[in-house]
Design a binder for these strands. Sequence first.
DNA 1: TTGTAGGCGTTATCAA
DNA 2: TTGATAACGCCTACAA
Lengths: 336, 336
Amino acid sequence: MITIKEIAKQLNMSTTTVSNVIHGKTSEVSDDTKKIVQDFLEKVDYVPNISARNLAQNESKIIGLALKARADKYENLIMDPFVSELIGGVEETIRNAGYFMMLYISSDTNEIMRHVSTWNVDGLILFGMLNDDGIRVSEKYKKPIVCIDTYSIEGLKHFTNVGLDDEQGTYDMVNYLISQGHKKIAFLSDNTNGVDLARLNGYKKALKDAKIKYSPSNFLKIRPHTKDLPESLEEICERSKEFTAIMCVSDLYAVTLMAAFADRGISVPDDISVAGFDDNMLGQLHRPALTTVHQNVKQKGTVAADTLLKQLKKIKTPNQIVLPTNLVIRDTVKKI
Amino acid sequence: MITIKEIAKQLNMSTTTVSNVIHGKTSEVSDDTKKIVQDFLEKVDYVPNISARNLAQNESKIIGLALKARADKYENLIMDPFVSELIGGVEETIRNAGYFMMLYISSDTNEIMRHVSTWNVDGLILFGMLNDDGIRVSEKYKKPIVCIDTYSIEGLKHFTNVGLDDEQGTYDMVNYLISQGHKKIAFLSDNTNGVDLARLNGYKKALKDAKIKYSPSNFLKIRPHTKDLPESLEEICERSKEFTAIMCVSDLYAVTLMAAFADRGISVPDDISVAGFDDNMLGQLHRPALTTVHQNVKQKGTVAADTLLKQLKKIKTPNQIVLPTNLVIRDTVKKI
DNA sequence: TTGTAGGCGTTATCAA
DNA sequence: TTGATAACGCCTACAA
């Protein structure tokens, strides 16, 4: 790999001049030398050494994407279609802006921080942080942070959040279920934190507005870890007889549930209605096609990255961005 | 961020000593000073500046994962469940070895090369390269390269390939279809290069061994790009009447096809049998569950990364690694 | 056992 | 318009 120093030597000029041409500081250099240098750069296929540049300018052109894995949930976080779509959106935006993305997956916040510090990452996108995780990070890391899907009022003082109107999403869907005549509606999720809690609240609100009583027994808990899944699905299918519709916190769970139903001869939507949340490939390819709450996941990623990029350019951004949802009525909910 | 120089100053010693302690060159330093330094490092939470280290040692501790996107195929490569599972395997292995992964997606080989050079990436994992793409890269890039799923005899002189016995996989499956009484078997794919060609060859071989004639009209071409997909699905469904079974080149296509069948009232496996290849979430969650050729995609990623890591340690590795496949018989193939 | 000094490739300051 | 030189943080050969 050829260096600026070497180029300067071969061209009988100083590194400064070469560097200036490279950076288009055209005012500083005569047209003649400019041309000479540019031709030479082209010829030798010069590529700068980023490490050296980082050291000299104290900026890395790296944006870190840190995914906090929940140890109990997936063996492999990235396999969640939601996560991979998100990464796709972030990666594309960062790349087009001339930055680089460093992906880091860990369940240990400290590990993430160490990683980010060694690389002197210019900005950080955080996903999967719970409650004050984000705040803890922002206290150590003094550069721009954008969180995705983090519910933390306190956090918004420290970082920007890109999220969804999760509550409104389930609220709308449960209202739709009610409009189709459903009264005994369960809510299925694996936890009641953050996003899941917001969706649960939307569900509860819709029930309340329709004067349907909510009971804790309406909450169906799925245990997604591979070894627990079959057993928890068995329980849920058993309990599903008490309901006419199930509002699932994600498409993945909705499709998983419908497969379990099919295995037991329970027919969707004839025996029971199912609604999802996300609108991803899984629900789109399912037959009957899943009625679900649409969100644009890729957009979530691009908006998060764009926002961070703006902050790096010192452009003011709102500290909370709420993306819309909308209902996608397909074939898994029956009018009763 | 505190530097070695600063630490040395505060401790009244030289940077060499501090550096030696950091690198565990314990023989070079007295136990007393070692302890002092270690305690101090702990206290100030020292994190090395990777750029500086890279510059000094001329190694980056980065492994590049370059995905060559085919412009015509996906808007977003990473959304392919195969790709995301692969990334998951690579990322995990690299991280556990103390390296860093830089993900780079592009359809332009030169762009990938430039990226890899600026970062002085220690090793490269390549996916999606066709024919001599990999060779072109290896001629410019003089460090270890591991390709995934690249079919290129010539290439094996230049790099290690981690692949699958794709031909055997479809061969086994088509034999199974034949054993179930099928004779009119189509093959569905979007191209006939690399992996797809190998799978097609396995299919042809099985037909030949069973003395069933292959005709080019047995090849059903799907056009996956969003705007073409519905039309190509319509054509395929129409043509499917000529066959009793369809061997699909991937689970994604098998599930996509079955959704199209369902929309037209064509029942799987009663009206037509379908087999896939990959064994991913899509086929597992489908009902009837997809009969498919299993491959361990995550393992593909981990093996590729492990192999590269070995090469970085100058450990010899075979220049071709072929992972096995096996049949997963589920419910989409009927005996006729 | 510890310290000094030079170099990695780039940028930036300031002088010529 | 161009060039010398120091600085970024770390590593290492060699000296003390």
